[in-house]
Amino acid sequence: MISVGNIAVVLFGAAALGGMMNTVPDYNSSFQPFSIFADQDGIGKGRQFTAELTGLKSAKVISYAQFGQEVSRDSSATFLIAELSITGRTESRQLEAIWLGATGRQYSQSARLEDAPRNLSSARFEPGLTDRTIAVFEMPEDEIVGGRLVLAPRASMVMDGAVYFAEAEAAPANHEMLRLEP
């Protein structure tokens, strides 16, 4: 009887473990930043920053000046430019942005435009100061409508807050050539 009881305990433990393994969220989905949603006015308050999405634009070609040289970048798809106004809250921070596409794919900021003026990649936000910045992405056009911008502190996304802005409901103004000014 004792043996039967032991076997039943082991079987129950194995079944419970199997059940938990199949129902508990996996590591990747568990260790994600906390979701903070921006309000109706497009203003999101993260733990260390407040951000407002002031506009979206798309462009086939982006140009700007760097150290007196003209730089022009084109894309095999389209550039999406998110214009932001960001205020630091408690400490000096750098932020990173991703675009969650309409298909669920994640697009990081384009590394080919890191040296563009006012780019989020090189910006640092100080407490109490508000700065304008842009995040530039490269993606197929059908990822824009239905997609959304996500903003989070750089390199510390896990266990911190990420601000989710509202989904893009309409295609943004499209430019054949967009000039980025400082």
Binding site: R73, D74, S76, G101, T103, R105, Y107, S110, A111, R112
Partner: peptide
């Protein structure tokens, strides 16, 4: 190929 710049990253669904 299109601008002879280094391939720094590759986006989903964009064939380069």
């Amino acid at each position: 190929v299109r601008d002879d710049d280094f391939l720094k990253q590759l986006e989903p669904r964009i064939r380069e």
